[in-house]
Design a protein around this nucleic acid. Structure first.
Lengths: 191, 191
DNA sequence: TAGAGTTTCCTAGGAGTCCTAGGCAAATGG
DNA sequence: CCATTTGCCTAGGACTCCTAGGAAACTCTA
């Protein structure tokens, strides 16, 4: 048989991530990815261990990509501008790459994240941002959870078409971020 | 053949919802539900149209249950107490019924929700709560989206075990709700 | 109460999926 | 140039969704 497809773990994971963006993360299937390469499904098992393994790799890879965008957006900003930049970069990524974003919701066994080379840049960026508001532990942890929850929830509901009111989500977004800014600015000092 | 299982749409959907809470919504499968009744999978197709149909019914039913809890919790509360009651009822439901909660994320075709008898009590309760803060359109829509996003995001991340810091999510929760209260209290009047 | 009709569940089977086992051919390196 | 490694294959089992058609259990009516 001539002409190998030239598969590697990276290319398989990337193809899976692209497929996730196009068809939805839950439709990322070993067979579908194999079809995309013009290859039998069994062939992929030389590169990935299982469907679960493939999905976890997509999740970690996507989280890295998101952290890159957010990190780049934060460069040179501080305070309220930084929050806005963070928020916009986050939402933009989630809307442009719904499958990659959805992948990050995947629950993994403890330790599996680090095992696959996942980092914590996203969390670190958030903490840096919040220290700009003068927050210290444990307030900074609580505030980070607020931000993560609000951003995550918003883009998730938006990308599911869950906001039904006539007002477009894009109009609400700055108001939501502004509300979070007020919440951060008025955080009680001594907890 | 003796002894029918006595299946109805309601009982099938309820069993599916219970299975979702135990094993995860994505493991709700026609075969698994049928096994729970001691029945062949083909038998369920007299009651449901497809797996998709079953899952949508679980979603709508679960949303109704959540709205019941939230509505009951809100009775006789107002202002900040109402927000806390809302938040606690919401989070309690999501943690006690992870599968039912996860089901509500299911994206449906437009109109399908109403077709299955789904209501909008959840949204109405939110709007009533926010009018207690003196908000009017379009601020009330933006604020509703903030609340929904933050609550949804928090319980989602929490139930996935996504909060890694040592501080327990239960400790952060009141602080997060308090922050939202400040954001609502300081919402700019004329938008 | 007996027959007719409806409902409920069955068997049978096709198509798609995940995954394993074992094999051949292409690339690589001594 | 030959041996080893690597990449993709075929074959096949188990499980899934779903359809088609049949039989048994209920229900209704004359």
């Amino acid at each position: 048989m001539l002409a190998r497809a030239g598969l590697t773990v990276e290319r398989v994971v990337e193809a899976a991530a692209d497929l996730a963006d196009e068809a939805g993360f839950d439709r990322v299937t070993v067979s579908a990815v194999a079809r995309g390469f013009g290859v039998k499904d069994a062939s992929l098992y030389s590169h990935i261990r299982s469907l679960q393994d493939l999905r976890e790799r997509v999740a970690v890879r996507s989280a890295g990509e998101l952290a890159d965008r957010v990190g780049a957006a934060l460069m040179g900003c501080s305070g309220r501008d930084a929050l806005m930049a963070f928020a916009d970069a986050y939402r933009t990524f989630a809307l442009a790459h719904p499958g990659r974003y959805q992948a990050q919701q995947l629950a993994m066994a403890p330790g599996r994240w680090a095992e696959l080379g996942g980092d914590l840049r996203g969390i670190e960026a958030t903490y840096a941002l919040l220290r700009g508001y003068g927050l210290t532990e444990p307030a900074v942890t609580d505030a980070a959870r607020l931000l993560r929850s609000a951003f995550h929830g918003f883009v998730l509901v938006e990308s599911h078409g869950g906001f039904l009111a006539a007002r477009s989500p894009a109009q609400s977004w700055p108001e939501v971020v502004d509300a979070l800014h007020r919440a951060l600015s008025t955080w009680p000092a001594g907890a």
